[in-house]
Simulated scan of single mutants.
Amino acid sequence: MIPSQNGMNLYHVHEAQMIRRMPPFGPLVAFDAVARHRSFTRAADELGVTQSAISHQVRRLEEFFGTQLLIRRNPGVELSDDGAKLEGELGPLLNEIAGLGPSLRNRTARQTLRLGAGSSLAGWWLVRRLRSFRHFNSEIEIDFRLVESEAVGEPPLDVRILWTTLAESRATPLQQPLLRERIFPVCAPSLLPHGMPLSDPTGLLDLPLIQKGHPPEGEWSWAYWFGKLGLKRTEPRGLLLGDMGLCLAAAVEGAGVAIGRSLLVADAISDGRLVPALANVPHVLSNKVHIARWSQDRTEDPHTKVLVNWLAQAAEDTDRALSAGSYSL
């Protein structure tokens, strides 16, 4: 036992002295990108996340240091005095860290791509197709990670599939649009007469409903759909779930009619677990778009290009097959 001094074990004194209060790494990277570009938009493009994610990360860093680092203008941003000081000290440190990645990858000749996506897209569409990708691209290993947020650098990914706004879905050197999904009601065949889609939308009024969101908004609300279909029911009631995957799982179990997205429901319709609830459905597009974003050091990587092009083609093939009523993978 190390002797004590003033009643405190000297080991714990030494341990306390060694613990550093480190700023969070992801927000440091986000701040560095904004500081270099003087732009949230270009920083988001570089890091493969949305502008709102960058803004959130910078605010986390400002809260950590207890000072304003950026002065937000319209347009653009400026550095505060403290922000300029941090930029001057942070840049060289991140450059040194960034230099470690390429050298370590070259030593191991890594051909593994770290791919991230949300749980709903992964479970209902993507994972089932990765076997096909590996069959035709055996030289590329996929290390898949579930990603439910856009925290910068958490986890480190080579390619990330995001569901983002139309304004942020344009093609850039670091991202490629994949698909804008169609939206339509789906349910288990057991809920419908003879398991067939309803020819008269008023039949929805007699069925249990499932909604996503707290509260549901826009095309994800039954109020929107009832207005679209000319149905008079001002306050649709039903099961309210916060996750699209849960909504579809409940629909498969016969809990009600859910508002589905074309990529997510295609395989379930092909398997007979779900059917479109309506024979004639209005053409409604999601207000968000699936995109693939990749890290800066993967810009010229041929394996990344192969993966992103495959993702775009797989999404297009799925949507085309669903539209044509042919659901083969």
Rank of each mutant, 00 (worst) to 15 (best):
I2K: 04
N9W: 05
H12M: 07
Q17K: 06
M18W: 09
I19H: 06
I19D: 14
M22I: 06
P24R: 05
F25K: 11
P27H: 04
L28V: 13
F31V: 10
D32G: 03
A33M: 13
A35V: 14
R36Y: 13
R36P: 04
F40P: 02
T41P: 01
A43Y: 12
A44P: 07
A44V: 09
A44F: 09
A44C: 06
E46I: 00
V49T: 06
T50C: 11
A53C: 00
A53M: 04
A53T: 00
Q57W: 02
V58Y: 03
R59Y: 09
L61R: 05
E62R: 00
E62L: 01
T67G: 01
Q68T: 15
L69C: 06
L69F: 00
L70H: 00
I71W: 01
R72W: 03
G76M: 02
E78Y: 00
D81I: 14
A84N: 08
A84E: 08
K85A: 13
E89Q: 04
L90A: 08
E96S: 08
E96V: 11
I97R: 03
A98Y: 15
A98I: 03
L100K: 02
G101A: 14
P102Y: 14
L104T: 04
L104A: 09
N106S: 07
G118K: 03
S120K: 01
A122Q: 05
W124I: 01
V127G: 00
R128T: 00
R129G: 00
R129A: 01
L130Y: 04
R131K: 01
F133E: 01
H135V: 03
H135W: 01
N137I: 00
I140M: 04
E150V: 13
A151G: 11
L157F: 12
L157R: 12
L157N: 12
V159D: 14
L162R: 15
T165G: 13
A167E: 15
S169A: 15
P173L: 15
P173R: 11
L174W: 12
Q176P: 03
R180H: 08
E181R: 09
I183Y: 00
F184H: 15
C187I: 10
P193L: 12
M196T: 07
M196C: 02
P197A: 09
L198V: 06
L198E: 09
S199N: 06
T202E: 09
G203E: 13
D206G: 15
L207K: 09
K212M: 08
H214C: 02
H214A: 02
H214R: 09
E217S: 04
E219S: 13
S221A: 10
W225R: 05
G230I: 12
L231W: 10
T234I: 03
P236N: 08
G238M: 00
C247V: 07
C247K: 08
L248E: 04
L248Q: 06
A249D: 10
G256H: 10
G256A: 13
L263G: 13
L263V: 14
L263E: 14
L264V: 12
A266M: 15
S270D: 15
D271G: 07
G272K: 08
R273P: 01
A277F: 02
A277P: 07
A277K: 13
L278W: 04
V281I: 06
S286F: 05
N287G: 11
V289Q: 04
V289G: 07
H290Y: 10
I291C: 04
W294R: 02
D297V: 04
T299Y: 02
V306E: 08
D319I: 13
R320H: 11
R320V: 15
A321W: 07
A321V: 12
S323I: 05
G325A: 06
S328G: 12
